[in-house]
Design a protein around this nucleic acid. Structure first.
Lengths: 227, 227
DNA sequence: CCTTTGAGTGAACGTCTGTTCACTCAACTA
DNA sequence: TAGTTGAGTGAACAGACGTTCACTCAAAGG
């Protein structure tokens, strides 16, 4: 049906014609359904290159809608990209709440958290792939939005580390640097899981060892500054 | 002159008309000069988005040459991208030789190496920006080429660590993981230097602290496996 | 019931895309 | 000096691009 290699759940606009179903959708429901279809189509099309390289018309064709209809939902591909960033991180934050709730201690942090992150990447591969690509190659505003979200997460991890008391002898600045080190490492790990999902087991095992190396060192570290 | 915001040293094809100069260029010299101009133009144009989002015609216009002429030098933008990867890493490897020659010991490794890397990023910003973007968002073959180059560097670092004897109690597998950890970290640092060159000083200071945290831990680490 | 609203339509526009082809004409070679 | 080579030309192509505009026609609402 599609001329590209991308496979997407077709947007069934003729739903109300499916014989049996008597009840239709509300206006708002239909709009939301089209919006979702556009987001999914863009996500799928960008997966073969990136957001800046796809066209509004490709997205519209993938959705099964005329190009003009796109503008009823997004002012531009860039704004669509910002919506995808938002959507991706909303899910990610929920997952992190889970991680931080179940792993207050550091030994647990590694063995308990990494598999949860890996599972979330597995279940949201297209979103993580989107973030990994657009983080460095997206339109400037999209890049900035992603950078900001990651920074927020880093800050949350920092306060969590401070609260846990695992790094009592750290200055607050150094706690921030440690949090940044960990987040950067996990970002790299997520990139690898996205790039090669079949090697999840090995990637995860290696990451666990590396995170232990890192934290064993971090816990032995002593800040030289104050506060 | 150009319709885009990109500013590039114009490719002076009318050089032989500059009055005084009597001696011309050889055929091969002219070809090489055009090739260079194409590489530089692509690097500059891709900086505003990415390789997959620019067109052969934009590159040709930027160079000041007819679109067809492009094919005399590269079969496609993807092959041009591979040439840029090659060029970027050739320079990078020379820099690393310098680093490894001057910093055989770990304390020196941090204080001696990071500034050299930072300087190289500063002097080759466009190449590093290209690598940072195309590493995750480029055409598959370009991504693969970059991944391979980074893996080679990781292996070299691993043998260097092993040779230095700084991690005698490590299994060879764990030395590889440590090298990977360090390389990943430096890649992240380079990304940041590229993204925000004005903050070089802060980025470098933070990275130094983080690398110390990491290595202090790594040196206290003890492998549990064999070999 | 009659009016308003707004998601989706379809044609049209000027511009840009990759690629082909036959060509020129200066540098090289024999 | 005569002949070959090959980097760069310029026209032409069929198609895709973003954006505009006036439009339809069900659902929503008074």
């Amino acid at each position: 049906m599609s001329t590209t290699a991308v496979e997407v759940v077709p947007y069934d606009r003729a739903m109300e014609e499916t014989a049996e179903a008597g009840e239709g959708e509300s206006r708002a429901e239909r709009k939301e359904r089209t919006r979702r279809a556009i987001l999914d189509a863009a996500l799928a099309l960008a997966a073969d290159s990136n957001l800046a390289a796809i066209s509004l018309r490709q997205v519209a064709k993938q959705v099964g809608v005329v190009p003009t209809a796109f503008y009823r939902h997004f002012g531009s591909l860039e704004l669509l990209g910002l919506a995808l960033v938002d959507e991706s991180f909303r899910s990610l934050r929920l997952m992190l709440l889970d991680v931080w709730r179940h792993a207050p201690e550091y030994r647990d942090f590694i063995d308990g958290s990494l598999p949860i992150v890996a599972q979330h990447v597995r279940e949201n591969r297209s979103h993580y792939a989107f973030i990994a690509r657009e983080r460095t190659a997206g339109p400037p505003r999209v890049r900035e939005a992603i950078r900001h979200e990651i920074e927020l997460i880093t800050r949350e991890l920092a306060t969590d580390i401070a609260r846990s008391g695992a790094a009592e002898h750290y200055s607050s600045k150094d706690i921030g640097l440690l949090a940044d080190l960990i987040v950067s490492f996990v970002v790299t790990m997520a990139e690898r899981l996205v790039e090669d999902p079949d090697s999840e087991e090995r990637i995860l095992a290696d990451a666990r060892t590396q995170l232990r190396m890192l934290l064993v060192g971090a816990l032995g570290w002593r800040s030289t500054g104050r506060t």
